[in-house]
Amino acid sequence: TYTYKLTDEEASRRAEDEWRNRGYDVRVRNNNGTWEVEVR
């Protein structure tokens, strides 16, 4: 499981799409203004 911490929502969406396209399960959540993109 990888977790990315990003401050930019758009960057988190791009990361989400990119990993999803590669067949990974992705979750995005906002934690106090930081976007966490979790990849498994």
Rank of each mutant, 00 (worst) to 15 (best):
T3Y: 12
R20S: 06
R22I: 06
D17K: 14
D25T: 09
G33N: 05
R27P: 02
D8C: 08
Y2T: 14
E38G: 01
R13W: 06
E18F: 15
N21T: 10
G23L: 00
G23S: 01
E38I: 13
N32F: 06
V26L: 00
V26C: 01
N21D: 10
R20V: 06
W35Y: 07
Y24H: 07
Y24Q: 03
V39F: 03
E10F: 07
E10I: 09
V37R: 00
D17I: 14
E38H: 06
R14K: 12
R40M: 10
W35D: 01
R20D: 02
T7H: 13
T3P: 06
N32A: 08
Y2P: 12
E16Q: 10
L6E: 09
R40G: 07
R22T: 03
R22V: 03
D25K: 07
R13H: 08
K5A: 12
N32L: 06
R14Q: 11
E10Y: 09
N32H: 07
E16W: 08
V37H: 04
R22F: 05
R22D: 04
N30Q: 12
V39L: 05
E38L: 09
R40N: 07
Y24C: 07
D8S: 14
N21I: 08
T7I: 12
R27M: 11
Y24K: 03
E36H: 06
W19F: 08
R13V: 07
W19R: 01
G33V: 01
R27N: 11
G23I: 01
E10L: 09
E38P: 00
T7S: 13
A15M: 15
W19Y: 06
Y4D: 12
Y2R: 14
W35G: 01
G23W: 01
T34R: 06
R14Y: 07
R13S: 05
N21F: 06
R40S: 13
R40W: 13
T34S: 10
N30Y: 15
E36M: 08
Y2S: 09
N32G: 11
W19S: 02
N30W: 12
D17W: 12
V39I: 12
N32T: 03
N32R: 05
R22S: 05
N21G: 10
D8V: 03
E10P: 07
T7R: 11
T7P: 15
N31S: 08
E9V: 06
E10R: 07
V37F: 03
L6H: 13
T1W: 15
S12C: 15
E9H: 06
R14W: 07
T3A: 04
N31Y: 10
L6S: 11
N32M: 08
E16T: 10
T1Y: 15
R22P: 02
L6Q: 07
T7K: 13
E18I: 13
V37P: 00
N21Y: 05
T34L: 12
R13N: 06
R20M: 06
L6A: 12
G33C: 07
N32K: 08
R14P: 02
Y4G: 05
V26E: 01
V39S: 00
V39E: 01
Y4H: 06
A11G: 06
D25R: 07
E36P: 00
R22W: 06
E36V: 11
E16N: 04
Y2H: 14
A11R: 04
G23T: 00
G33R: 00
R27F: 12
R27E: 12
T7Q: 14
R13F: 05
E16G: 09
W35R: 01
R13M: 08
T1E: 11
V26M: 00
R14A: 11
N31K: 08
V39T: 01
V37T: 02
T1S: 14
E9W: 09
S12E: 03
N30H: 12
R27T: 15
A15H: 12
A15F: 14
V37Y: 01
R29T: 14
T34M: 12
D8T: 13
E16S: 10
T34H: 09
W35N: 00
E10S: 09
R29W: 09
E18K: 11
R29Q: 09
E38Y: 06
Y24F: 12
R22Q: 09
R20I: 07
V26Y: 00
S12H: 03
E18N: 06
L6G: 09
S12Y: 07
Y24D: 02
A15S: 06
A11M: 09
A15L: 15
T1P: 09
W19Q: 01
E36I: 13
N30S: 10
G23K: 01
S12M: 14
N30E: 13
Y4R: 00
D8A: 03
R27A: 11
A11F: 05
T7E: 15
W35L: 03
T34P: 01
T1D: 13
G23V: 00
N32V: 03
N32P: 00
D25V: 10
R22H: 07
R29I: 13
D25F: 07
Y24L: 04
K5R: 10
S12N: 02
R27I: 15
A11T: 10
R29E: 05
W19L: 07
T1K: 12
Y24I: 04
Y24G: 03
D25Y: 06
E16Y: 12
E38Q: 09
D17E: 14
T1A: 11
V39R: 00
R27S: 13
E38T: 13
S12V: 15
R22K: 12
V39G: 00
S12W: 06
D8F: 04
A15R: 04
Y2A: 11
E9T: 03
A11Y: 05
R13C: 05
N21S: 13
E9R: 05
D8G: 06
T7Y: 15
Y24A: 04
A11K: 05
